Each structure stands twice: as C-alpha cells, then as structure tokens.
Amino acid sequence: MASRSIDAWIVDEVPSPAPAAPLDSTATLSARLAPLAETARDYARAATSANTTRAYSADWRHYSAWTRRQNLPALPPDPQVLGLYIAACASGAAGPQPCSVSTIERRLSALMWNFAQRGQPMDRKDRHVATVLAGIRRTQGRPPEQKEAVLPEHLLAMIATLDLGDLRGLRDRAILLIGFAGGLRRSEIVGLDCRAEDGLAGGWIEFFDDGLLLTLRGKTGWREVEIGRGSSEATCPVTALETWLKFGRISVGPLFRRVVGGKVGPDRLTDRHVARLVKHTALAAGVRGDLSEGERERKFSGHSLRAGLASSAEVDERYVQKQLGHASAEMTRRYQRRRDRFRVNLTKAAGL
C-alpha cells in the first residue's frame, strides 16, 4: 500500500483545489493505522454540524471557482486575493447579484475555517481584508431582515389548519408546539431522539409529571431545555408530543419521522420540513394578511417559532435567554420582535 501523510488521511475529504500540506513529510500511515485515521476523520466531521459543513463546503467551492476564473491561486491564502474576492461579492462581479454584508461575512468565516483545515490559517484582521470589509459595511450595511415572529394567536390559527385526524397532522402539531415552547432551532427539533441511547443525533427527551426535559447538543456543548405543560390539552406541547408518539407507535429512535402511505416510517425528518411547515401553515392561516403572498412567504421560516417565544414570554429576560441558549442578553433581544416599547419614558423622567 502506498504511504500517505497523516494530514492527507484526515482532511482528504474536504474539497480543495490543492492538496493539504502535511505536518511532517516523513510521517506515513501503515495499514495498521489506517482504521485509526478513519476514526480521526469521523471525529473531525463531527466538530461541526452537517448544515455548517454543507454551507462551508459550498462557500469554498464558490471561492475556488472565482479564483480559477481570475487565474489567481486559492492556496496558500493571500489577503490581497481575499480582499478582491469580497469586493467582487459586494459589487456583484462574483455572481448574478451583489451579496449582502451578512452573506459576505459568512463566506469569510467559511474560508477562514477551510484555510485552517488545510493547515494554512490566515488572519482575518489583515488590513487587506478588514479595510475592504469595513468599507462594504459602511456603504452597503443595513439592519438585517428578520423573520416574522409566530405569536401565540398565530400559532393557534396555524394549528387549526392541520388535519388532526391523521398522523401527519398530529406530528406537525407536535413540531409547531414543541418548537415554539422550547424556542428551538429547526435542526434541534428534528435532531431529537426518544432516548439517550438512541444514537445522540442531536438530543433526547424525558417526560416528567410537570413537563418535558430536552437535552440538546448545542454549538458550545450540551444544554437542557424545560418545556412545562400548557394550560389546556389543546395547546399543551407535552400532550401534543405524547399523542404523536402514542398514535405513531414510537418509543425508540428519531422523534419526528416521515409519514408515508398513512404509516410512520423509520426515517428522520430533515430540518427543511420545519421551515416548509411554518411557511405553509402561516400562509394557510392568513398570518400577516396585510402583506402580499410573496412577502408573507419570505417572512416566515423555522426561526419564526424561536422568535415567537422570545417575543411572547412575559417573564424575566434571563429565563428566555437560558431557554434559547444564548450567551448574551443582547442576542436574545434581537429575537424579540414585539417589545413593550416606551414603557419607560426617559424624556418625561428628565423633566421635559
């Protein structure tokens, strides 16, 4: 068997226009160590979520294609080339239309990650990159377009559009209520398993007399989310989940699964189902009927459930922050679409 460097064994599945540089040109792997290298590669894949990995791979392909068209090297990382790239993205020269500031910043993060994975890290604060990015922010920056929050009255109207006489309706009601009450991301919803020993895709559930405890795999580690029982069975997320599991005959494995031909299958739902579900039911319920159908479709996504809890829960902000898993109160406030504005009038308090 031909010898290979340790780096090549671990990162050879990351898309790259050039091979990764080895840590030690003399380091080779024998057939005995090949399985261990595969294990290391599995752990490397698990370092980021599947969605993040897909996004970073797509951004790397975009950058690599642009550098090839310009006859510029993608590797080793060159701050001046990167500065030209983000300028092209901002102006529309790197695609069919100009990119937003948030898209450019995401692509920069993806490229920094890709460079680091190839053992060639680059300083994002280099003046050739930082100065161009500062100019883009100054000339093109605008407040981010936030998704509409699904408020409690919206949620009830959305659930009313479901057919609760079949398994799909029961499943989708549980998804909407659990996603809202838990302030969950769509990937967290579909990543749940029935038990801790079911594979740890993204977390598991435990039922208690007073409610439901979710143990979730977050970006920075594991966290717990408590979902209490509702004031009525019709709106209780715990009851909705118990009903879905009972009629779906689910006790192990993925919590939310595909329903095919009136039967529950073994396959876990993808997070795209949550986004489609929120959009479809919001449109069917006439939520934000003052907007055109196209605008309404753009306004709603899986994140609308998470924003809805943050905007609706009339409790101390720190409890909402903990439920959403935010590191700062400022991040939680970004999710609060409806606040009690002007409750404190500093103008009058100052004597005017």
Rank of each mutant, 00 (worst) to 15 (best):
M1Y: 00
M1I: 04
R4Y: 00
R4G: 03
D7V: 09
A8P: 07
P17K: 13
A21F: 10
T26W: 05
T28H: 14
S30I: 02
A31Q: 11
A34H: 12
A40W: 03
D42V: 09
Y43A: 12
R45M: 11
T48H: 11
T48W: 15
N51M: 01
T53F: 04
A55S: 15
Y56L: 14
S57T: 15
D59C: 10
R61E: 12
Y63D: 07
S64L: 10
S64G: 08
W66Q: 07
R68K: 13
L75D: 03
L75Y: 14
P77F: 01
P77Y: 01
D78F: 01
Q80P: 03
V81T: 13
V81A: 06
L84N: 13
A88G: 02
C89Y: 03
C89T: 04
S91V: 08
G95H: 10
P96V: 02
P98M: 06
P98Q: 05
C99K: 06
S100I: 04
T103E: 02
R107V: 03
M112A: 15
F115T: 09
A116M: 13
P121E: 07
M122D: 01
R124W: 06
R124N: 00
R124L: 08
H128F: 05
A134L: 05
G135M: 04
I136V: 12
P143Y: 01
Q146M: 09
E148L: 06
V150W: 14
P152V: 08
E153Q: 12
H154W: 06
L156M: 07
A157C: 02
L162M: 11
L162S: 07
L164G: 14
L164C: 07
G165V: 07
L167T: 11
D172N: 15
L176S: 12
L176M: 15
G179I: 06
F180W: 09
G183Y: 01
I189C: 03
V190N: 06
L192I: 00
R195M: 00
G202E: 01
G203H: 00
E206T: 06
G211W: 14
R217S: 13
R217E: 04
K219F: 04
T220I: 05
R223Q: 04
E224N: 11
G230E: 11
A240N: 01
E242L: 14
E242K: 09
K246I: 04
K246H: 08
K246W: 00
K246N: 01
F247K: 02
R249D: 04
R249I: 00
I250M: 00
S251Y: 04
P254A: 11
L255M: 05
F256G: 00
R257F: 02
V260F: 03
K263M: 12
D267T: 13
D267E: 14
R268M: 10
R272T: 10
A275R: 05
R276C: 13
L277I: 07
K279V: 05
T281E: 06
A282Y: 02
A282D: 07
A284R: 10
A285K: 10
G286H: 12
R288I: 01
R288L: 10
L291D: 04
R296C: 08
K299N: 09
G302M: 05
S311F: 02
D316L: 02
D316N: 15
E317H: 02
Y319S: 10
Q321M: 13
K322L: 14
Q323N: 08
L324F: 02
G325E: 05
A329G: 02
M331P: 02
R333Y: 13
Y335Q: 02
R337F: 03
L346F: 03
K348L: 14
A349S: 11
L352E: 13
